[in-house]
Amino acid sequence: MITYSFIFLAVLAVATALGLVISKNTVNSALFLVLNMVSLSGVYLLLQAQFLAIIQILVYAGAIMVLFLFVIMLLNIDEEESLFNKFRIKYFVAFLLGVGIFAQLIYSIGSFSDTLPVVSAQMAEAGTVEAIGDVLYTKYSLPFHIIAMLLTAAVNGALLVAQHKTKPLTEEND
């Protein structure tokens, strides 16, 4: 059962990823990406990472991609006249890089296979919200705080960059 689910999700993920890259319509690209994320979330469930599976949908598909779609609509850039870069040499480089990195990665990963099961026995507890929350607020509290600060800063920074008009300057000059 797990095998069939994995095959289905994997095929779906690769197909949507390809769809994202070659789709002419930007909105379609975004929707392909949403579908890709949903299928990855399914894979996470197979791997017993329940918490991540949920926030993958909530944060990625639910929030980030909505933002993307919002911007695409706002800028009204759904159709592209010519899809890809004109530089042929760049295709070649991209192809080489892609194949090269892919081969390297598969080769590296291939050496990893061993007798351990895919999902270790401890995973049943490790993937829960409780387990993650436990370390997040103790061991990883410092990066967690920094992330909180970063999100605040990012929102303010985005406002700074996207504001249409510059704010009025302070009047006093020295």
Partner: peptide, 23 residues
């Protein structure tokens, strides 16, 4: 994790600063 978080905190703020003269 600290490397990743620190690096990204730095980078994201710098993206904003790089775009300061966005007009």
């Amino acid at each position: 994790i600290m490397i990743f978080v620190g690096l990204e905190t730095m980078s994201i703020c710098l993206y904003v600063l790089a775009g300061l003269i966005k007009e």
